[in-house]
């Protein structure tokens, strides 16, 4: 088990991304999962996808093995609403190469869309 990259992680470290979903994105998502309905707002899996994108691409980054995600959805995000997703390391368990992170998505004026927690394995 190579922990060089794990050892570079620090509790409190965070990563963010900004994203605005369009009505076309939502139509594409409905088509992808064969859902013949108009969807009001942004589907929750696209919000969840922002966290998985951050975890896999940024923090911890490539090589991340996504084990768990828990989410509470406070209000539906609107299409064309500027969203900011963030992940923040809350706990590092070196003996098991596990990383716990808090995950938050906010919308216009900082309103809370979704919050939750992720658990990933990060070893090489």
């Amino acid at each position: 088990m190579n922990l060089d990259r794990f050892d570079a992680l620090k509790e409190g470290q965070s990563a963010k991304l900004n994203r605005t979903f369009t009505a076309e994105d939502v139509r594409e998502w409905c088509e992808l999962c064969q859902l013949d309905q108009d969807w009001p707002g942004v589907p929750e899996p696209l919000i969840a996808g922002l966290f998985s994108c951050l975890l896999g691409e940024d923090l911890p980054g490539h090589g991340t093995n996504y084990l768990k995600q828990a989410m509470t959805f406070h209000t539906a995000a609107d299409t064309s609403e500027a969203l900011q997703a963030s992940v923040t390391i809350s706990r590092l368990r070196r003996d098991k190469a596990l990383v716990n992170l808090t995950t938050v998505c906010t919308g216009r004026d900082g309103r809370l869309i979704c919050d939750g927690e992720a658990l990933v394995l990060f070893q090489h």
Partner: peptide, 29 residues
């Protein structure tokens, strides 16, 4: 992607309970 699997789940929930709201979701992969 794990969240593509979640998308299939969410789609079936929406088809089975139209107009429902998802309050919380936990996932393990």
């Amino acid at each position: 992607h794990g969240m593509l699997l979640f998308s299939v789940v969410r789609s079936l929930l929406a088809q089975t309970w139209p107009g429902s709201t998802l309050n919380r979701q936990s996932l393990m992969f």
